Simulated assay, not measured.
Amino acid sequence: MSTLLLAATTFALGCYALASVLVLVRLVRGPRAQDRVFALDLLYFHAMLVVMVMGIRHQSDRYFEAALLIALFGFVSSSAMAKFILRGEVIE
């Protein structure tokens, strides 16, 4: 792996770590439930991006499959939380 790619992935992981800390602050301090749901949505998105950067860094396809699973479960959980906030129930 080239030095430039190693530096770029390290920088990207640092940026995602900083962004995740800021999102955690919003998750804790969020005045409304919508803010907290959006913060959780961003956290799974950041986790997916971190796994993808790690896949680039380690040059492995397994990481991209894990990122796909994180995206799938994140979408389903976000939809369930939105439905719960709107209707007060998930299963009708």
Rank of each mutant, 00 (worst) to 15 (best):
M1W: 06
S2A: 11
T3Q: 14
L4H: 13
L4Q: 14
L4S: 10
L5I: 12
L5S: 13
L6V: 14
T9C: 10
L13E: 06
G14Y: 04
C15N: 06
A17V: 13
A17R: 05
A19C: 11
A19W: 03
S20K: 02
S20P: 03
V21L: 12
V21P: 02
V21T: 08
L22K: 06
V23W: 01
L24A: 13
L24W: 09
L24S: 12
V25E: 07
R26W: 07
R26L: 10
L27Q: 03
L27W: 06
V28A: 15
V28T: 08
V28L: 14
R29A: 11
R29N: 11
G30R: 02
G30Y: 00
P31I: 02
P31V: 06
P31A: 08
P31M: 04
R32W: 08
Q34R: 15
R36T: 04
R36A: 06
R36K: 15
V37R: 06
V37I: 15
F38T: 10
F38K: 07
L40M: 09
L40C: 07
D41M: 03
D41E: 07
L42C: 09
L43S: 02
L43E: 01
Y44N: 14
Y44S: 13
F45R: 04
H46V: 12
H46C: 13
A47E: 05
A47C: 14
L49K: 00
V50Q: 01
V51W: 01
V53L: 03
M54W: 07
M54K: 04
G55A: 09
G55C: 01
G55K: 01
I56K: 02
R57K: 13
R57H: 10
H58M: 10
H58L: 14
Q59I: 05
Q59R: 10
D61C: 04
R62C: 03
R62I: 11
A67D: 00
A67V: 02
L68T: 06
A71Y: 01
L72P: 00
F73H: 05
G74N: 03
F75G: 04
V76N: 04
S77E: 05
S77L: 13
S78T: 15
S78R: 05
S78F: 15
S79F: 15
A80I: 13
A80Q: 06
M81H: 05
K83N: 08
F84N: 04
F84D: 01
F84M: 09
F84K: 08
F84G: 03
I85H: 08
L86H: 14
L86A: 15
R87V: 11
R87D: 13
R87T: 14
V90F: 08
I91G: 03
E92L: 11
E92A: 14
